[in-house]
């Protein structure tokens, strides 16, 4: 099964109901699957930090959610992660990496290099998937830990797994 289908299956198995996201080419297929599935409410956001508020509200109301974004969005969520930590809201963020091997836009590099350290500095446990076969297990683990521990978890999907090498390729994705 391709990894977007595997992530979708993991979300359903974990009874996730709300999917907040800012789009990324690497999440394109997963977003289509989420929008097409009536069990899920896929909520497009104007900025990634709004996904943390959305997830907190959904959890207060008894629903599980996840947040999808690319690594540049991690820079936008730093302060709001403090709420997830101090309230111990369960949170899983699935992040497609930019600024790594194969990056075609140099402005993406600094945040890509700082993504993991930023998340860890704010108390988020990070697991990284460097191959497509590793992704589903990391996501299942992240979901399990987030909802068992009431903790913040992130799964980083390496840029080479997505494999987009140019603006043209991204547009054709």
């Amino acid at each position: 099964m391709p990894f977007p289908e595997e992530i979708h299956a993991a979300l359903i198995a974990a009874r996730v109901r709300v999917v907040g996201y800012v789009p990324d080419a690497g999440h394109k297929r997963l977003l289509e699957l989420c929008h097409a599935d009536r069990r899920l409410r896929a909520v497009p956001l104007t900025t990634e930090e709004d996904g943390i508020g959305l997830a907190a509200g959904a959890w207060l109301g008894g629903q599980r959610s996840v947040l999808l974004m690319q690594s540049s969005g991690v820079g936008n969520i730093i302060n709001v992660l403090g709420m997830a930590k101090v309230c111990r809201f369960p949170l899983l963020i699935v992040i497609t990496m930019r600024g790594e091997a194969g990056e075609f836009n140099s402005w993406q590099v600094p945040m890509g290099q700082g993504t993991q350290a930023t998340l860890e500095a704010m108390g988020v446990t990070v697991e990284r998937a460097d191959a497509a076969e590793e992704i589903a297990e990391r996501v299942r683990n992240g979901l399990k830990k987030a909802f068992q521990e009431n903790s913040s978890q992130a799964v980083l999907i390496a840029q080479r797994v997505i494999g987009i090498k140019s603006f043209q390729e991204q547009r054709n994705q």
Partner: peptide
Amino acid sequence: GAMGQAAMIGLGLALAQ
């Protein structure tokens, strides 16, 4: 804290309930 998020927390809650 989480300045700027009150309306989004409300949205998550309203969708869940």
